[in-house]
C-alpha cells in the first residue's frame, strides 16, 4: 500500500509550511497527517523527516509512544469498546471477548477482510450508558453480550 517515493506530496509541503518555525510542532503535524490519511504511513513520515530535518527515528519515537497514532491503516469500521471504570464494572470485558471471538482479532487489530478494527478505549464519556461500544462514532449503550453479533452483522450487511 505504501509507495516508497521520496517526492514530497503537496499536502505535506503546505502542512509543513504552516507549522515551520513554531516550536514543538511535531505532535500537531502528526495529528493533521493522521486526520488526513487515517494513520501515519511510513513514506509520509519519511518525507516529513526530510522536510523538517528531523531524523526518522525521532518521529517514530513519538508515534510509537502515543496510543493515538496508528502505523497501520484502520479497518472500514472501527469498533471502540470502552473499558473505563463504569463500563468495566457493568461488563465491558465480556463485550471485548465477544468481538474477539466473532472476528478472530485481538485488540488494536483489523479483521482479515479489512472491514473491522477493534480498539479498546479508556472512556467514551458516556458512563451513564455503560457498557458502551461505538462503531465509527455511532454509540451503542447498555450493550449485552448477546447483542454484539446483531450490531456487527448490521455493518456487514451494509457493506
Amino acid at each position: 500500500m505504501c509507495s516508497t517515493s521520496t517526492t514530497t506530496s503537496p499536502e505535506i509541503s503546505t502542512l509543513v509550511e504552516k507549522w515551520r518555525g513554531k516550536k514543538g510542532s511535531l505532535i500537531m503535524v502528526l495529528h493533521e497527517l493522521q486526520n488526513h490519511y487515517g494513520y501515519v504511513p511510513r513514506d509520509v513520515s519519511l518525507q516529513l523527516s526530510q522536510q523538517l530535518d528531523i531524523p526518522l527515528a525521532r518521529i517514530y519515537e513519538v508515534i510509537t509512544f502515543y496510543n493515538y497514532f496508528k502505523l497501520d491503516p484502520p479497518g472500514k469500521y472501527t469498533i471502540a469498546i470502552c473499558l473505563g471504570t463504569a463500563c468495566y464494572l457493568k461488563g465491558a470485558p465480556d463485550l471485548v471477548d465477544e468481538v474477539k471471538n466473532l472476528l478472530d482479532i485481538g485488540e488494536g487489530q483489523t479483521s482479515k477482510d479489512g472491514l473491522f478494527h477493534l480498539d479498546v478505549v479508556r472512556c467514551l464519556g458516556c458512563c451513564g450508558l455503560a457498557p458502551v461500544l461505538s462503531v465509527n462514532g455511532q454509540i451503542y449503550g447498555k450493550v449485552k453480550r448477546s447483542e454484539v453479533m446483531g450490531i456487527l452483522s448490521k455493518y456487514k450487511k451494509e457493506d
Partner: peptide, 25 residues
C-alpha cells in the same frame, strides 16, 4: 491549543511539558 495523543502519563506536569515540546511524554 496543543493536542494530547492518548498518554495518561502526560497528566504529570513534566511529562505534559515534554509533550508540548513535541517529544515523548
Amino acid at each position: 491549543i496543543r493536542l494530547g495523543a492518548g498518554a495518561f502519563v502526560c497528566g504529570e506536569e513534566t511529562a505534559l511539558i515534554a509533550s508540548i515540546e513535541g517529544k515523548r511524554g
